[in-house]
Simulated assay, not measured.
Amino acid sequence: MLKKALLVIDYTNDFVHENGALTCGEPGQEIDGNIAGHIHEFAHNREDIFFLTDAHHEKDTRHPETDLFPPHNIIGTSGRDLYGEVEKASGQYKNEPFVHYLDKTRYSAFAGTPLDLLLKERGIRELHITGVCTDICILHTAVDAYNLSYPTVINRNAVASFNQQGHEWALGHFASCLGATVY
């Protein structure tokens, strides 16, 4: 049986809440129940779930995103808290051995994190990627997953972006260039 894992990427207040520092707004909020549903499904089957959250330091002038985006997901702020139903589902399973929380400081959930090592230790061979932003962190994570030979599944109703054109482009790119299953 092919072991799979759910990745929930950057589904935080700063990226989803209407007052978030770098919010997707309504598109991000609309996928809340879908991601929570995936969390419950994976938890029911005791399959690994990884919550990967952007982590920035206040007034960090050396980070490459500093000139691209307003400050967001600052360590120690509520902007880094998970949003809505996803936060509730996370809380429900947070002490389970199959639930993992990792901070990340780059777009890809693999860059500078032990994600690949943790997946390999658990024998995981397929990744189901959810969260935001489709054309930034989801895209870069999917590219790295491809380069590491992980088959990838993307549910179009469990990813969103503040850029609808970029969102649609990324969905096509996942299927046509990365061989991902997009449904």
Rank of each mutant, 00 (worst) to 15 (best):
S90Q: 12
L178T: 08
T152Q: 01
P151A: 12
A145K: 13
P27Y: 00
E47W: 05
Y183W: 15
V153E: 05
R122Q: 06
G76Q: 11
F110A: 02
V182W: 06
I154F: 03
N157D: 09
Y183S: 12
L7M: 08
T77H: 09
N163R: 07
R106D: 04
F15E: 01
G84L: 10
H72K: 09
A55M: 10
G123S: 08
Q165C: 04
E85T: 12
V99N: 00
T23N: 08
K4Y: 07
G131P: 05
S90A: 13
Q92I: 05
L117F: 11
D54R: 00
K88W: 06
A89N: 12
V16W: 14
D10E: 06
G28V: 01
H17N: 13
T12N: 00
N45Y: 11
A158M: 06
T134P: 15
E58G: 08
I136C: 06
E18F: 09
Y146W: 13
P71E: 15
I154D: 05
S108K: 02
Q164C: 02
D81Q: 08
K4I: 04
T12C: 00
H63T: 11
Y107W: 06
G179N: 12
G20R: 01
D81L: 06
V132I: 14
E18T: 07
S161T: 11
H56K: 10
C24F: 08
P27I: 01
P71T: 14
A160V: 03
T53H: 13
Q164W: 15
V8A: 00
H128N: 03
L178D: 03
A170P: 10
